[in-house]
């Protein structure tokens, strides 16, 4: 047995066991050591620019724009900026409802979610957010998939 083989099997074990792990584990947005992610995103100015880029992309995406027909965009923008700030460990209070509640009845599909993730990544790239920072934010947002889709 080569060392590579043992390493690969260990990785496989980690992978398989992660699927059996407690699924209630969620990112803890308000820990003190996470403030740096909000800073890395450029604080309020940076996060606002990312959200504006995201909204601009949504507005021209015929796949998903219809979900926002009845949305107050100004309020939505404010809540989104708050939410990202809160998720990234910034010193903000999120005044909106839970992800599950806000998406109730919208029947957001995986394709909708994927499209939004794509736009978020593109917007962060436009703001020159480094790869590691982008990935750190996605890590916190990705688990929201189950609360957002198919409700």
């Amino acid at each position: 047995m080569s060392r590579l083989w043992i390493t690969m099997m260990a990785l496989t074990f980690v992978l398989l066991s992660s699927g059996c792990a407690d699924k209630s584990v969620q990112p803890a947005p308000l820990q003190a050591d996470t403030t740096s992610l909000y800073q890395a995103l450029g604080n309020d100015v940076g996060v606002s620019a990312i959200i504006d880029g995201l909204l601009k992309r949504i507005s021209t995406d015929t796949r998903i724009v219809h979900h926002f027909d009845a949305t107050d965009i100004a309020l939505f923008r404010e809540r989104l900026i708050e939410h990202i700030c809160w998720v990234a460990g910034g010193d903000c209070e999120y005044h909106g409802e839970s992800m599950e509640k806000t998406h109730q009845g919208l029947n957001i599909t995986q394709a909708d979610f994927d499209a939004l993730v794509g736009h978020l990544i593109a917007s962060m790239k436009e703001q020159h957010i480094p790869l590691a920072t982008r990935n750190a934010l996605l890590k916190r947002l990705a688990p929201m998939y189950s609360d957002i889709t198919y409700h």
Partner: peptide
């Protein structure tokens, strides 16, 4: 499972 989004691996 969903490759990117769920704790459960995509199977």
């Amino acid at each position: 499972g969903e490759l990117l989004y769920t704790a459960m691996p995509q199977i």
